[in-house]
Amino acid sequence: MHRRLRQFRFVLLSTLLGLGLAPISAAQDSACKQVRVAGPESYPPFVWYNEPGPEIDGVGVALVKKALEGTGTQVISVKTSAWNRTIARTVAGEIDVLAALYKTDERSKALHFIGPYGTERTAVVSRAALGLNVSDLSQLGGLYGGAAQGDSRGDFVEGELKSLNVIRAPHVRLLFAMLKAERLDYMLVGEFSGLVRRDFSILEDPALKVDVLSEPTEGVYLAVSRQSACFDVIRGPIEKALTDAAGARLDAMKADALARFRQGPLRKAPAPKP
């Protein structure tokens, strides 16, 4: 009886090896000693990078760290120069988790979205001298606007932008500089990612006017690369960490994160090149 059981186990193990299934846990364990996390440079309370170092902070990062607590897996920050490049690296599996991202049909092909754990609306920042009161994107026809590369405003807004004259710039700081230099009439940003920053203040600038669109409201998600070597290891724990933090606890985490961000040093925004 025992001999037959050993033979059965041997045959089962051989079959799993042949299918490439048996070594998964061991391979994943060795490949997942580090989980690489990235996000937008300045997106409080969800995620931001502390200057001058590359250390990442925010609610999204805290959720990932909580999910992997006690596993021996190190969460490390990855910073790239442009947001569209960050997304491309995540799609390729070079980055494991994006700490804050809108969900779109196209992105869902390469990324597994968890959440949402927050919401955000689109803000239209225009030159005050134009006297705009924007409640709908159709009012921007005939004007010259800008948005950041890789910064999707969600499927609905991106569809509306196809009929507008909008350029894509590498970074929101460049858009701000172009707007101040009157090279743009307006720019589109998130109400957090564009309006709550350390390098420049839109809300306190009398030369600028902000209109936050009431619709649509987009969810802010954690996104795990489907190409990540850690995908099957980290997906479940991150989903559980978000479920455990739902409600008042998550609201408290956002308030604490925003307070930490506002205590940080200010940075000077670059002037536009002539």
Rank of each mutant, 00 (worst) to 15 (best):
V166W: 02
V210G: 00
D185Y: 05
V220H: 03
G219P: 07
L213I: 09
R173H: 07
P206L: 02
R173V: 15
K162S: 00
R183I: 07
L195T: 04
G159Y: 03
K209T: 14
R183C: 04
I202G: 01
V210W: 02
M187Q: 09
S201H: 05
S193R: 04
I202N: 03
Y221Q: 08
K209F: 05
E204V: 11
E218M: 13
M178G: 10
R197V: 00
E158W: 03
T217A: 14
V189P: 13
L179M: 13
G219V: 05
I202Q: 06
E215C: 12
N165Y: 06
V212I: 07
R197D: 02
S163R: 08
G190H: 05
S225Q: 07
S163F: 07
E160Y: 09
M178D: 15
P206A: 00
I202E: 00
F176A: 15
V157E: 06
K209M: 07
L184S: 06
F200C: 01
L184T: 11
L203W: 01
E158Q: 01
S214F: 02
L208F: 01
R153Q: 08
L222D: 11
V172Y: 13
L164G: 09
L203A: 08
K209D: 04
G190C: 12
L161Y: 08
E182H: 14
V224E: 15
L203K: 04
F176R: 13
I167H: 08
L208T: 03
E182N: 12
L184F: 09
V157Y: 02
R198G: 00
G154Y: 12
G194D: 08
F176Y: 14
M187H: 09
K209W: 00
L213W: 13
N165I: 03
L164V: 03
V210I: 04
